[in-house]
């Protein structure tokens, strides 16, 4: 049986499977570690790092939810990410279309102007942003943060969408115009669906960037009720004591929403990421 299999598939196939199993292990191991550690106390995490918990420590989850307030942080991160993504998808597409189709004068220059946004590091704007937010009383509020995050992610999203739009034939626009569509109708009814993968890529990147962002969240969202996941998790890293079990429980709880979104939108996300790899 073994010899027959080897004859049919060759050693290459075995090598392929070995690598595949190794990769599965490499990718699953951190998840296993986080989940298992979320049921241990500090001592057990350090003492028996790789084994299953001797006694399941549900208290970690109780602390993560009620004392640390991780669910509120997950909600905050989700709202900011979803909000910024929504703005990027709508505004980014509307902004990219006239540049791609040269509908407006100075489209090339405008494209170059947006390039500056890619070249200037966002964190270089930290102090002016803190000053602006403080003077205008915008700290610890959702909408200003959503607009800030959308602004930071706007240039890269624009370039992704423009790149995809450029690959869509202009004849489709012309056909839509001949059929009586206005420019907005052409954009949202004809071009927008055709550019789905490109727009998804921009949206996914924005969502992930905002979901994991730390520096602006740490300086502009300081009240407990407004903290995002990354800031809340840092709060568990004590001055000289870290609640590792609670931190892992909080990480598990913060992964869950993303996992649900991923399972629901698996096809779109995978198509978007693959597309990004080619178009980006």
């Amino acid at each position: 049986m073994k010899a027959k299999y080897l004859k049919k598939h060759g050693f290459g196939s075995i090598f392929y499977w070995l690598i595949a199993v190794l990769l599965v292990f490499l990718f699953l191991y951190p998840i296993y570690f986080v989940v298992v550690s979320s049921f241990k106390d500090n001592n057990e995490i350090w003492y028996t790092m790789f084994s299953l918990p001797e006694e399941v420590e549900w208290l970690n989850y109780q602390d993560a939810i009620f004392n640390v307030g991780i669910l509120r942080s997950v909600l905050n991160s989700f709202l900011l990410s979803a909000g910024a993504t929504l703005v990027i998808v709508i505004v980014g597409t509307m902004g990219a279309y006239p540049i791609s189709r040269h509908i407006i004068r100075g489209a090339k220059q405008l494209k170059l102007y947006y390039l500056i946004g890619l070249m200037v590091p966002a964190y270089g704007m930290l102090i002016p942003m803190v000053k602006l937010f403080t003077q205008l009383g915008l700290r610890d509020k959702y909408w200003p943060m959503i607009l800030l995050y959308a602004g930071i992610n706007f240039p890269i999203s624009m370039y992704l969408i423009i790149g995809y739009l450029d690959s869509v034939s202009r004849e489709i626009d012309e056909a839509a115009l001949i059929d009586g569509c206005t420019v907005p109708q052409t954009l949202f009814r004809v071009i927008f669906p055709l550019c789905g993968p490109g727009i998804s890529t921009a949206g996914i990147l924005t969502f992930l960037n905002v979901y994991n962002e730390l520096v602006f969240a740490n300086t502009l969202l300081q009240r407990k009720s407004m903290m995002t996941i990354s800031v809340t998790l840092l709060g568990l890293k004590g001055e000289r004591f870290t609640s590792w079990g609670v931190m892992f429980a909080a990480i598990v709880l913060s992964i869950l929403p993303i996992l649900i979104v991923y399972l629901l939108m698996q096809e779109k996300i995978e198509a978007g990421v693959t597309n990004g790899a080619v178009k980006g």
Partner: peptide, 27 residues
């Protein structure tokens, strides 16, 4: 989102004082 965070709006004539320490871990 429209309301922002009620707790963070102007505090009804209260004087706002911020305190920053390294005590944030309830564990």
């Amino acid at each position: 989102m429209a309301s922002g965070n009620e707790e963070n709006t102007a505090s009804d004539g209260k004087t706002v004082v911020r305190i920053l320490t390294r005590f944030s871990n309830p564990g």
